[in-house]
Simulated scan of single mutants.
Amino acid sequence: MNFTGLAKKRCSIRSYQDKAIEPEKLQAILEAGRLAPTGKNHQPQRLLVIQSAEGLEKVAKAMHNANAYTAKTVIIACADVDDCWIRSFDGHRIEEIDLSIVTTYMMMEATEQGLGSLWVERFDPEIVREEFHLPENYAPVSMLCLGYANPEAVKSPERYDTERKPLTETVFYESF
Rank of each mutant, 00 (worst) to 15 (best):
Y16M: 01
I97S: 10
V49K: 03
I50G: 06
V128N: 03
E126P: 01
H64Q: 11
N150A: 14
L144K: 02
M143F: 02
G114D: 10
C78L: 12
A139H: 14
G91D: 02
D161H: 14
T73C: 14
G116I: 01
N65H: 15
Y69P: 00
A79M: 05
R34E: 05
D83S: 12
E158H: 09
T170F: 06
T168Y: 04
T162N: 08
L48M: 12
I75Y: 06
V171M: 14
S175P: 00
S117D: 02
C11D: 06
A62H: 07
G5T: 15
A77N: 12
R87L: 12
E158G: 08
A77G: 13
P135F: 10
S100E: 06
D161S: 14
D83M: 13
N41C: 03
I86F: 09
S142L: 11
I127Q: 02
K8V: 00
L35G: 03
E169I: 04
D98E: 07
L144A: 03
D18N: 14
I127W: 01
F176A: 10
D82C: 10
M108E: 09
G147K: 00
F89D: 10
E158F: 09
E54M: 08
V128T: 03
V81N: 03
Q17V: 03
K155I: 00
I29W: 00
I13F: 07
Q43C: 11
L6T: 12
E57A: 15
L56V: 01
V102N: 06
A139M: 13
Y138E: 05
A139D: 04
T168A: 15
L48C: 11
K8W: 04
N150S: 12
E163F: 08
I76F: 10
L99N: 01
T170R: 12
G147V: 04
P135H: 13
L47S: 09
I94F: 13
L167Y: 11
F3L: 15
G5H: 11
G39L: 05
T168C: 11
E130M: 06
I50F: 02
Y16P: 00
N137I: 05
E109Y: 09
P151S: 12
L134F: 08
K155S: 10
Y16A: 06
S156N: 13
A149I: 04
D18M: 11
D98W: 04
A77W: 13
K61A: 11
L56G: 07
M106R: 02
E152W: 06
M108I: 15
A149W: 04
F176V: 11
L144T: 02
P44L: 04
Q113T: 01
R164Y: 07
F3Q: 13
E131R: 09
S175R: 14
L146V: 03
H42Q: 12
L35W: 11
I29C: 01
Q51M: 07
F172E: 04
A28T: 05
V141F: 12
C78H: 02
A153M: 09
H64Y: 15
L118T: 07
T73M: 09
V120F: 09
S15V: 00
E22I: 01
E57V: 12
H133Y: 10
T170Y: 02
E130L: 03
N65I: 04
E152C: 05
T111N: 05
D98I: 03
H64D: 10
I101V: 15
I76K: 03
G5V: 02
S15T: 01
P125W: 10
Y105E: 08
